[in-house]
């Protein structure tokens, strides 16, 4: 069982990197929207796993996408941040439920799942575009990019999520 989930995560990692760099980085909706679907990796990653390993993996995921898209370490920094903040966000969204041994994301309500994903995306995009543009003069540009790209990312993540979700037994 352990090796199974390990294998699943490796496959997910590789597939998400390839899909991100070969498909979604080239979309350019309206000339500037490139949704970042690889955030799903952090959404799907098991909850009860070692946290240090999770943070390391998130960094690795971000940096591999950076290699392909010549974006310095922007993806790494933002993915790292949401990986670190994930427990806090989960506590905010799921509340007491998180304490139960049998807690699973698939057992929570649809609204909670969407809120969790939305918060991940918002934090990620805020860090990403702030670092990318790197000036407060262009604050409006940052907001515009965060909201537009965030909306498309959320939509695509939900679609992907319902396509590839692990079925409830």
């Amino acid at each position: 069982m352990i090796s199974n989930s390990y294998f699943l995560n490796v496959v997910r990692f590789i597939l998400l990197v390839l899909v991100q760099v070969l498909v979604f980085n080239r979309l350019n909706f309206f000339g500037f929207i490139n949704p970042m679907v690889y955030i799903l990796f952090l959404y799907w990653y098991p909850i009860k796993e070692n946290r240090g390993a999770f943070i390391g993996l998130a960094f690795l995921l971000g940096i591999s996408i950076d290699f392909f898209s010549d974006s310095m370490a922007l993806n790494a920094a933002s993915t790292l941040t949401i990986a670190y903040m994930r427990p806090a966000i989960m506590r905010l969204v799921f509340g007491v439920n998180l304490e139960f041994q049998s807690f699973k994301i698939s057992n929570t309500t649809r609204i909670q799942q969407i809120t969790f994903l939305t918060l991940l995306i918002i934090v990620h995009h805020l860090v990403f575009f702030t670092l990318e543009i790197f000036s407060l003069e262009n604050f409006l540009l940052i907001l515009k990019k965060v909201s537009a790209t965030g909306a498309v990312t959320l939509l695509l993540c939900l679609l992907f999520g319902s396509l590839f979700s692990i079925r409830k037994e």
Binding site: G56, A73, A77, L131
Partner: peptide
């Protein structure tokens, strides 16, 4: 660990804000 990795990525990012594209990235 978070701070350490963050410093690494910020170094790469900020360094290339003021200078050329990174040699490795």
């Amino acid at each position: 660990l978070y701070i350490f990795l963050m410093i690494i990525s910020m170094t790469f990012t900020i360094q290339s804000h003021s200078y050329h594209q990174s040699r490795f990235f």
